[in-house]
Design a binder for these strands. Sequence first.
DNA 1: CAGAATCCGTTTAGATACTG
DNA 2: CAGTATCTAAACGGATTCTG
Lengths: 113, 113
Amino acid sequence: MTPLRADMFDEICPSTLVPLRMGDKWAPLVIRCLEDGPRRFSELRVPIRASAKVLTTSLRRLERDGFVSRRAEGRSVDYALTPLGRSLAGQLESWCRWTEANWDELLDARDPV
Amino acid sequence: MTPLRADMFDEICPSTLVPLRMGDKWAPLVIRCLEDGPRRFSELRVPIRASAKVLTTSLRRLERDGFVSRRAEGRSVDYALTPLGRSLAGQLESWCRWTEANWDELLDARDPV
DNA sequence: CAGAATCCGTTTAGATACTG
DNA sequence: CAGTATCTAAACGGATTCTG
């Protein structure tokens, strides 16, 4: 194994944080939805077909981890990517590109349930 | 949002598979453990401090998705990365590098629970 | 509008004991 | 050695109802 400061075998290491957070069913979608700028709660609910409770949970976690910021003004609330969140979005896109590059293998490999 | 064939908003799309599978608590560790070659079940259990049941579950899923292969010979069983799994391991390493590049921000941003 | 509260079913992790 | 079986507890997702 390549020695890295990012030691996934250490539970405290932030490298374990990213897969766990992205493993959240809705978090990657939230990140992608915010790529083009701030969105309100109700705007996120249209493309992301999760219940209000579940979406809120995702947003709170992303906020706590510093990927998303929340700004309330009057009745409306804006969610936006932080600089760290934008950086993560780039990482996510590189992932999608990996998926595209391995598309057929991914579909073929998968044992149908 | 950049238009990609990998559409995370489509539940069937394999791009959703990767974050979900990597969100598995032990899967990323399994992948890393197999980077240097095949390992037996008991060898995996040393660095990966999960119960036999949980580790088995992870391995079965990784096998089903085509990232890991299982080969039994006599009493011993070898697990190894498939070509697809090796490719994923590279992706995982790029993730760790991203973590290292954003180390301080990740630690600072994180709201202590 | 942006959630919070509640309830419910499923999934997951973990510990323990057992087996071919 | 490489699991399986069983049980428990916690986490997660979803639907519904309510509220400032």
